[in-house]
Amino acid sequence: MIKLVQHTLQRELTLAYRRRADLLNPLFFFVLVVSLFPMGITTDLDKLTEMSGGVLWVCALLASLLSLDLMFRNDFEDGSLEQMLLSSAPPQVIVLCKIFCHWLVTGVPLTLLSPLLSIMLALPGHALPVLMASLLLGTFSLSLIGSIGAALTVGLRKGGLLLTILIMPVLVPVLIFGTSTVQAIVLGLAWPGYLAFLGAFTAGAFALAPWLTVAALKVSVCD
């Protein structure tokens, strides 16, 4: 089992490296959309400070939704996906590895990019570590829940937009917990509670998502 996990992680990460152009797009999107907000709404730094948590969170959510469609698509098209479902290990393990890699190559870079953007939005410095922690946790649950949507739509030729429609309402709690955490620390309120909700949500998603994803993959692969 450990060998399989090692092998899958290695495969996913080398593939991600070889397709690195695809991975840059969500990052560019993140930067671009965040920088549109001040131009569209206000350049007043005080008002931006108030909004910064929400803006960063909404943009991070949209950016990682963009990359979800690629999670299973290539494997579906070349037939690797059905082999994964026939693997001698539980397919949930392979799926979880894929989700983890997706997070490593989208959620983590988005988080690492967030300090730069938080300066542009005048987020107070002391809130930055909390923002990054909430983004790290939140993007992981985005990858977990998003994998269900990606699995449901992988068989459709134009699944990308549908995937967004399916998964967005389910992600509302992530957005709310994440934004509330950041806003709480900006306003000087107690924030650890909100972060704990986010953690609990992620833990729940971690427990359920792999099973639902495998069930959804079976729907897409089996005819």
């Binding site: 269900i148 309402p169 709310i176 917990f177 909100y194 639902l212 959804a216």
Partner: peptide, 27 residues
């Protein structure tokens, strides 16, 4: 396929409804 896919999505949604209500209440 639509039946099965929608059933899975409905399960995801129904598990989430209490959490959504809780989080919306929070915000």
């Amino acid at each position: 396929s639509g039946d099965r896919a929608a059933a899975i999505l409905a399960l995801v949604g129904v598990v989430n409804i209490p959490v959504i209500k809780f989080s919306v209440n929070l915000v």
